[in-house]
Amino acid sequence: MQQTRTVELGTGLFVLLGIGSLFFLTTQTTGQHDFAADETFEVQARFENVGSLKTRAPVSMSGVTIGRVTEIEFDGETLEAVVTFVIDRRYDKIPDDSDATVLTAGLLGSQYIGLQAGGSETYLEDGSEVLFTQSAVVLENLIGKYLFDRDSGDGG
C-alpha cells in the first residue's frame, strides 16, 4: 500500500511538473504581443513603401502600443501600399491630421507604425484615413543615396 502511494504521488508530481513546464514554455518564451483591446476602430493609411512591415505589427504613439496592423494590401490603381490597422476605442482623441510613419525598432529590429499627433480639432474615427504618411527607410536606398551623393560631390 505504501509502495503504490509513493508511486502515485511521484507520478502525479511528475505530470504536474510537466504541465507546469509546458505552460511556462508556451506563455513565457513566446511573445504575447501585448496589445489586446476589446473595442477597436479601423483606420487606413496609404504608404509609398512599407518596407518589411508585417500584419500584427504594433501601432504606437509616443512609444506606447495603441493598436495593431491588420491588413497590408497593394492598390493596383494608385500603386501604393494600403495599410489597415485597428486602434483601441479608448483613444478617440487622435487628431485626424496626425501623420503615420513606418519605423524600425532598433537598427535591425522589426518594423512598426508610429503615429505623430497633429493639431486638428477633428479626430480619427472608424473608417477614416491617415493622410500624411512617411515611407519606411530602406537601408539599401539610404546607402545608395549616400554613395551617390559622395560620388557626385567628388565630381563637382
Binding site: V7, T11, V15, L17
Partner: peptide, 13 residues
C-alpha cells in the same frame, strides 16, 4: 500505465 510513467518518467527526472 501509471506505474510505468513513474518508472520511465518520474525516475528520470
Amino acid at each position: 500505465v501509471v506505474a510505468q510513467v513513474h518508472n520511465a518518467g518520474a525516475l528520470s527526472i
